[in-house]
Amino acid sequence: METKDYIESGILELYVYGLLTESENDEVNAMANKNPEIKEEILSIEKAIINLSSSFAPFISHSQFEKIKARLELKHGKVVDFKSRSNTATYIGWAASIVLLLGIGFQYSKLNDSKEQIETTKKEKEYLQQTVVVLETKNKNTETALNVIRDENNTVVALGGQAAAPTAKAKIYWNKQTQLVYVDASGLPEPPEGKVYQIWSLKLQPQLTPTSIGLLANFKSNSNKLFAVEKTGDAEAFGITLEPAGGSATPTMEQLYTLGKV
């Protein structure tokens, strides 16, 4: 076999890695002794592996390598043991092993990084979706509020503070044709725990007759404090009382917060 063909056959790399049989090693040694070009190629391969291993892991000690090797044996089966020929050959074998182990470790690390990145991206996507839903809800509520305020068919009833809450105030937007009622409760303080505001449609004549038309539920979470309540068609006044959670059958007059005539 020609020298060039012998070099390009890959046998010299296997020789350096310690993967040849004893007879094959003897053959390569004999060829290297006879042919300086082959010997030079062997030295070149050894030098390349040493440089590569040093650039990858100048900090890995023998004990650290053994730990890596043990972990790989658990995952991938027994790691190949290289036959030693000399101190230099042993070092080259270890160097090649380290390069291989580092390559596997690097790929494993990249895989973990990719999984973490996918999980992070998934959480960010879920957060953005939730944000979009919240913004859409706020925009819808804002649009509803503007439509209510701008509707010229609405009768606006101002409710002033009463003895239970002199500084409280509210507004009723009442469309007498559709009987729809909206309450602007932005002038009311946040109700105490276990309490809720209740809206009353009032008939004043021939006697005071209150009719509940709804509760201002979820007061804290309603950012613009505009509430749609039940319809009414014959109100002469509106009032708001503070009641126990769930509301009351009749208004608690001692907790009358606001009142206003139509």
Rank of each mutant, 00 (worst) to 15 (best):
E2C: 03
D5F: 03
S9K: 08
Y17C: 00
L19F: 05
L19P: 07
L20I: 09
K34M: 09
E41V: 00
L43V: 10
I45G: 01
I45K: 06
P58G: 08
F59E: 14
H62L: 09
S63G: 10
F65N: 15
E66W: 10
I68G: 15
G77T: 04
F82L: 01
T88F: 11
A89G: 14
W94G: 08
S97D: 03
V99A: 06
I104D: 14
F106L: 10
Q107M: 04
K110H: 08
N112A: 12
T120Q: 13
K122I: 05
K123E: 12
Q129V: 07
T137M: 08
K138Y: 10
L146N: 15
N147C: 05
V148Q: 03
E152A: 08
V156F: 00
A158M: 10
L159M: 03
L159I: 02
G160Q: 06
A163N: 15
A164P: 09
A164Y: 14
K169I: 01
K171Q: 02
I172P: 05
N175W: 14
Q177I: 15
Q177S: 13
V181W: 06
V181Q: 05
Y182G: 06
G187C: 05
G187V: 04
L188I: 15
P192M: 13
I199Y: 01
I199A: 01
W200H: 02
K203Y: 09
L204E: 11
L208Q: 09
T209A: 06
T209G: 02
L215S: 04
L215C: 00
S223R: 08
K225P: 03
A235P: 03
A237Y: 09
A237K: 11
F238N: 00
I240C: 12
E243Y: 11
T250R: 09
P251S: 07
L256D: 14
Y257N: 13
L259V: 11
G260R: 05
K261P: 02
